[in-house]
Each structure stands twice: as structure tokens, then as C-alpha cells.
Write a protein that binds this DNA or RNA. Structure first.
Length: 578
RNA sequence: CGGGGCGUAGCUCAGCUUGGCAGAGCGCUCGGUUUGGGACCGAGAGGCCGCCGGUUCAAGUCCGGCCGCCCCGACCA
């Protein structure tokens, strides 16, 4: 490609809104152009990078018996209603067409796949199958951010497995994880695989591929000693502390201006581990909140810990939660800032009357707690679980944090930020059951298809490649995903004969299949061309100039290194033909 | 949705406090000089100052509303 004919241009300065380095460099190099919050055009060079990543993914998927196809992005509402996700997936874009027809934009494609399986999977002979496609996903993200990191419209490779049983999937699953590792490695992005929460996808278990990054939006727990790694939404930890030998008497004390755990612990003179933290949520079964639907959930941990919302949702069996309003808190007899379970009747389950009180396991690792008295401004001291208050259930609902004890080896864990680039889900029968997608086994028995789904965001991965491969001058694309292999630079004056030599080099390299971007622009100084080449980050730079010709050929330089060497023109082709 | 910031030329930004001709650098066009790290000289083009309303003789500037963008949080298959 000749730069003199290329659509788009580089920028000397990045637009002010770009904060992440990948965002800045991709904008400056004109790989992407914003169209709105979380919506981008991929410019010619950016699209070439996407195609390179696309090809790598297709190769790895094909290698494990995958078949590429192309699925629709306009989904009839009926498909999403059939799986029950029409009102459950909060980021779903819904639209109305003429008449009463309703559609969803493709937030993901489980609905399409499970619908396909209805007709195409009839017998155990039709299993297992793995299909995948690369296409657009649309999600109404509340806050797009970080350039290509979080988008409203993005490009995703998603694969789907259909199996006879959990065992059959278990057998295949490691090859998928390996393929994922291969993909990321080939793109120059080493990942950490962590256990994660399945969230709204449903299913049994999931593995997330993440790249540790200070500005990542995922938080995960890592143990240096044993390698334990899990998303904070799923990470366990060992609760430490002991029950006191004797229970103190429950007594009510005046605690003015003590609305936080830190305040009250300091005022009374106890560590925060000797307090209980109470947080109130409103729970409802669907994302779309209907008046009168749902109930209060009273969550409790020891005062030194925090509630993890995802763990809490799992502890009550799914659904959605939001922070309760002050009126809702008061409706169950609790006083904000001075709340506790003392005097409350716990509900047996989510259908029963009373207050649904979910306590973290940590309340069993301490006692003689300071708790609210449900009376402003009083607290109780000497409160003990069992004697002074009851709960509906005890569960793991506290968030693991740096310094906690590893659930695997007992070492100390650390919380880190990371960018999620891929996610594998063992879905099980979550979707097949919803639409009764079955097959007949050898015994003529009808059985539910066992599903898995596996996604990678291509644009996000592209951003992460840049996060990991750049210097002060610009991007340094790994060879595998670079938009071109060679950036050919011509420097010279009209009539000095250098242009003809550069043209010849361009023609020869292109003829043998080398992808060449040729800076044939006239009238630009060497500085401008070199700055552009550094910014765009193509792995090899080949310069043809009066100086290089005097030295015997073209100057060849690797983007990632500073050495330059002269290669004679007749050996150039041999150098780059691989 | 809560908190903060921003919106003036293609990009980066000044001008707003204290109302009075719409500005600079880069980029772009033309001419010339340069030609190995964003070079120089000269001449130009380019604006609904985010939108709507209000105050005023006069609004980019003051007031109200709305929209958009960025960051933190909430949320996030």
C-alpha cells in the first residue's frame, strides 16, 4: 500500500480524552476513530490488525475441530424470551420495528446457537460439535471507557460447544483452554487464567483470561506461594480470628456521631474485627424492576470485611440487587448507621416472611461484637451470634483482599487489577433446558444437550497488545498482528534517482507476497516519515535514500531495536521472503 | 444512576474572573528554500464559540434548561 493513497492521517498530538496509552497511540496512528462513546470506526490499518487477530483465532479454533460460521446480529425477541433472558440481561439493546415486532441486538449468541441445535442436533451421533464466529456484539454499557477496553459495539470471537454430557465437555474443555492460551501467546499477550463468577451467563463454572494491568477494571486475587488465582467475585479466603472464651453481657451504650465502623470501633476502643457491618439491599428476580416485586436482603460481615455483591447474589440464589433506600431500610425496623439483626426474625428462605439475613462466615470467627442498636445513637457491646441474634443463612459473601489467607495454601494473597481478554463458560444445560434442546442417546433416551461458550474481544485484545508493546515513540506491533511486515521509507529529492530504486524495492517485495506499506509521499522530510513509521509500529523499516544507496543498498531496521544495517538491494527479497 | 471535569478551527489549547472586532501553535492550500528524526520564509483558506431559551444597547463570556464527551464510583456476559 502506498501511503500517498492511504485514507486517513496520523496525529501529532492525541485528543485530550484519551487516557490509556493504547487509546492515545491507536488514535494518533489513525488505527481507530471514535463515532460516539464506546463506538469506533476501524480505519484501514486498524482493520488489518483485526484481520490478523481474526486469522490467528480461526486457525486455533479450526485446529480443535471448530467450524467458523456467521450468525445474525438482529435477534428476534422470541429467541431471548425463550431462554428467559429478554428481561434478565441488563445491557441488552432492544428495538421495536414496524408492527409489533421486537428485536434485540446481538449482545451474545447463545440464543442463536441453542435455537440452531433444535433442528441440527438430533442424535448422539451429532455430538460433540464446536462452532464459532467472529462478529459484532452490542451492549448498552453504562460507562464505556479506555478507548477499546470497554465498548458498546465491539468485535467478538465466540465459540460454542455442544456435548452429550458434563463428562464429555470436561474432556474437551482443556483443549479449548489451551487454544486460548495459544491465541494470546501468538498475539504477544501473556495471560493469567483465573476462576471467575458465571454472572448473568449462567452455568457451572468459568475461567477468565486476564492481563494484569494497573488500569484494568477486573480485580482478581493472586497467591504468590501457590499460584491460586481467582476473580474477587469468586475468590475464597480463610477467615481468621477466634470466638472469645466467654460471652460478655449485652449492653447498650451511647455512641454519638458514630455512623461508620471506623468511628464506632475507635469510640468504643475495639478493633474493627470486633464489630459487625450491616448493609442493606433490595433484591428482585429480574433486571427490570417492577413495583412491589422483590424483597429486602440484610447482609452482614465482620466489620473488617466488605460485602461482595456478586457473592451475595449467588448466596440468595441469583437475581439482581441494588442498594436499599433509607425508607426501605427503616421498613424492616433497622436504623441506618445503627443497624443490626438484634430483635429481628430471620426469614427461612426467599419465599418466607421475616427478614432475609445473610451473614458472612466471618461472624463465626469472633464474638462480643459491637453492633448497632437500631436506635440512634446507640450501639450494643457484647453481642454474640446465636445468643443475641439469628440469621437466615451463613455464606461466603465477603470480598477477599490483600493480606488475607490463601484458601489453597494458607499463604498471603494479593488483590490485583487486570483486563479481561477472554472468558470460557461451562454453561451446562442452562440454555438447552430453556428451549428443550435434546438428543437421543444410544438407549433411545432423550437427553439435554450440554453447552459451553467461549469468548474473546478482538478490539480489546488489540488494545492490550498496544498496552504491552509500545515505547515513547509509538506502537511496536508483534509480527503476528502487525498491519504490514515492512514499512518502506523513501527519502530523496526529485531527480536524484532514489525514487526509482524505492519503487523497484516496493514492486519486488510486493511481488513475493511481503506486506509492504510504502511511504512514497513527496516533499516530506526524513523526520516526518521516521516519526510516522515509529508511531505506526510496523516491525521492519526499510529506508531507501541517497545515503543508504551510497552505503550499498537499503537501510534495514527492526522497530523494536536501535541497530540499523545496510542490505544490498538484490538481497532484500531474500531477507523478507519467509 | 451518584461525584468530578470538559465542550471555542481537523488536533492541542488561550480568551470567560471583570460582557465590547473570534485568537495562537500544529495540521491544511499556494509560492519559494530545504531533504536522515515532526525544517524554514512568505501568502492564504478554515468558526452555528455543543444546542435551546433568558438577561443586556451588546453574550464565546452572565443566568436557566438540555445534549454530548472524559475520569472515579455503582454496574459489567
Amino acid at each position: 500500500m502506498r501511503l500517498s493513497r492511504s485514507f486517513g492521517k496520523t496525529l501529532r498530538e492525541a485528543p485530550a480524552e484519551a487516557e490509556l496509552i493504547s487509546h492515545q497511540l491507536l488514535l494518533r496512528g489513525d488505527f481507530i476513530r471514535p463515532a460516539g462513546a464506546g463506538i469506533y470506526t476501524f480505519m484501514p490499518f486498524g482493520y488489518r490488525v483485526i484481520r490478523k487477530i481474526w486469522d490467528i483465532m480461526a486457525e486455533e479454533m479450526d485446529a480443535i475441530s471448530g467450524q467458523e460460521m456467521w450468525m445474525p446480529n438482529l435477534h428476534p425477541a422470541a429467541l431471548w424470551q425463550a431462554t428467559g433472558r429478554w428481561n434478565q440481561v441488563d445491557v441488552l439493546y432492544k428495538l421495536k420495528a414496524s408492527g409489533n415486532r421486537e428485536y434485540a441486538l446481538s449482545a451474545t449468541h447463545e440464543e442463536i446457537v441453542v435455537d440452531l441445535s433444535l433442528r441440527d442436533i438430533e442424535s448422539y451421533r451429532d455430538l460433540p460439535r464446536m462452532i464459532y464466529h467472529i462478529s459484532k456484539k452490542f451492549r448498552d454499557e453504562p460507562r464505556p471507557r479506555g478507548g477499546l477496553i470497554r465498548l458498546r459495539e465491539f468485535i467478538m470471537k465466540d465459540a460454542y460447544t455442544l456435548d452429550r454430557s458434563e463428562e464429555a465437555l470436561d474432556e474437551y474443555y482443556p483443549s479449548m483452554l489451551q487454544a486460548y492460551t495459544n491465541i494470546f501467546d501468538r498475539c504477544g499477550v501473556p495471560t493469567v487464567m483465573i476462576n471467575a463468577d458465571v454472572g448473568a451467563m449462567g452455568g457451572k463454572s468459568s475461567q477468565e483470561f486476564t492481563v494484569p494491568h494497573p488500569q484494568g477494571e477486573d480485580e482478581f486475587i493472586y497467591c504468590e506461594d501457590c499460584g491460586y488465582a481467582a476473580n474477587v467475585e469468586a475468590a475464597g479466603f480463610v477467615r481468621e480470628g477466634e470466638k472469645p472464651a466467654t460471652m460478655d453481657e449485652l449492653s447498650k451504650v451511647l455512641t454519638p456521631d458514630c455512623k461508620t465502623i471506623a468511628d464506632v470501633a475507635a469510640f468504643i476502643g475495639v478493633p474493627t474485627t470486633q464489630t459487625l457491618k450491616c448493609v442493606f439491599y433490595w433484591w428482585r428476580p429480574n433486571y427490570v424492576e417492577k413495583p412491589g416485586e422483590g424483597r429486602m436482603v440484610f447482609a452482614m460481615t465482620r466489620g473488617d470485611l466488605n460485602i461482595n455483591d456478586t457473592k451475595l447474589v449467588n448466596a440468595v440464589g441469583g437475581g439482581f440487587i441494588r442498594q436499599a433506600t433509607e425508607e426501605e431500610v427503616r421498613s424492616i425496623g433497622a436504623v441506618p448507621g445503627y443497624a443490626s439483626a438484634i430483635g429481628m426474625t430471620p426469614a427461612k428462605d426467599m419465599e418466607s416472611p421475616g427478614v432475609m439475613i445473610v451473614a458472612d462466615e466471618s461472624i463465626n470467627y469472633g464474638g462480643n461484637y459491637v453492633v448497632g442498636a437500631n436506635d440512634d445513637p446507640y450501639h450494643y457491646t457484647g453481642a454474640n451470634y446465636g445468643r443475641d441474634f439469628q440469621v437466615s443463612r451463613i455464606a461466603d459473601i465477603a470480598q477477599a483482599a490483600t493480606g488475607h489467607k490463601c484458601p489453597n495454601c494458607g499463604g498471603r494473597i494479593e488483590a490485583k487489577r487486570a483486563i479481561e481478554v477472554g472468558h470460557c463458560f461451562k454453561l451446562g444445560t442452562r440454555y438447552s433446558k430453556a428451549v428443550n434442546a435434546t438428543y437421543l442417546d444410544e438407549d433411545g433416551q432423550e437427553r439435554l444437550i450440554y453447552m459451553g461458550s467461549y469468548g474473546i474481544g478482538l478490539d480489546r485484545l488489540m488494545a492490550v497488545v498496544v498496552e504491552l508493546h509500545h515505547d515513547k515513540d509509538g506502537i511496536i506491533w508483534p509480527d503476528s498482528v502487525a498491519p504490514y511486515q515492512v514499512h518502506l521509507v523513501h527519502i530523496g529529492k526529485d531527480g536524484d534517482g532514489t525514487k526509482e530504486k524505492a519503487e523497484a524495492v516496493y514492486a519486488e517485495l510486493t511481488a513475493v507476497g511481503v506486506e509492504v506499506l510504502y511511504d512514497d509521499r513527496d516533499g516530506l522530510g526524513a523526520g516526518v516519515k521516521f516519526k510516522d513509521a515509529d508511531l505506526m509500529g510496523i516491525p521492519w523499516r526499510v529506508t531507501v535514500s541517497g545515503r543508504s544507496l551510497e552505503q550499498g543498498g537499503a537501510e534495514v531496521k527492526r522497530r523494536s531495536e536501535s541497530e540499523r544495517q545496510i542490505v544490498s538491494l538484490d538481497q532484500l527479497v531474500a531477507t523478507f521472503r519467509s
